[in-house]
Design a protein around this nucleic acid. Sequence first.
DNA 1: ATAATAACAGTAATCGTTACTGATTAAGAG
DNA 2: CTCTTAATCAGTAACGATTACTGTTATTAT
Lengths: 134, 134
Amino acid sequence: MATKFSRQRQAIWDFIKDRTDHPTAEAVYLGVKSACPNISLGTVYRNLMLMRDTGMIRTVEVGDGVIHFDPNTTDHNHFICTNCGKVIDIDGGDVEAIKQEAAAHFTGRIQGYSAYFYGLCPDCTKSAATKTTE
Amino acid sequence: MATKFSRQRQAIWDFIKDRTDHPTAEAVYLGVKSACPNISLGTVYRNLMLMRDTGMIRTVEVGDGVIHFDPNTTDHNHFICTNCGKVIDIDGGDVEAIKQEAAAHFTGRIQGYSAYFYGLCPDCTKSAATKTTE
DNA sequence: ATAATAACAGTAATCGTTACTGATTAAGAG
DNA sequence: CTCTTAATCAGTAACGATTACTGTTATTAT
């Protein structure tokens, strides 16, 4: 067989598989250290990219110059807080409708899709409201 | 006055203002060299980022790890060819409808938006069809 | 248990972007 | 037109995320 399931790969998968906070490679690296104290950052990158290439996870590029990883491979949109940088899933939107809408105005075949919405996340909206009137 | 309109900035603006091909900083740098033979890459970056900050142009992050620049600041979508990497505008889509659709499923205020569609561009579709059946 | 090789840790290299330097130069005042 | 001054420049060094390389380790099939 071609693939060996190493302890490190398992640890990375265990760490990321239920995440909804779109960690970076660095964050995965730090998070996996408890299970694999001397894992290498290169190993984390290699495995994350391999998981992406095999469709286990998806990469998300938010505009902060760093790659984020998302175990949710179903079609969905992302919200990025312009204040704290948090990346939040927007579930339940009719992604198919959005694709259709764009396809109607383009003469190529649209396969994939990813959209990013920007604004203040609920938390930052709250703390902004707390501050003295501004 | 705070702003000086240098020859270099003018050249960069002249180069990019009518482009629809979303050049990178590197591409702008090369393209501007004929007008400004010894312009510096740093100058190109500084001016492009300044133009973005003042709303003259927009940055587009496509997933290739490089920043692209777009003089079209009106709301529109982008198509990225997974074969040749070309970035093409999708004009005429109802962007507002897409925003609404997503906003309906999210409890924060959505301000900005950018969406990317992936697939084979018209050119690559054509040349793929030319090849022996595969 | 052993062989074969995927995967590893550690580190060096790459590359896009940003920051720093002292030298230029655009723009307003006299 | 000349002078002043601060914005901008060219050139280069620094930075940080990601990738590539190298010799070692460990998973899997036999």
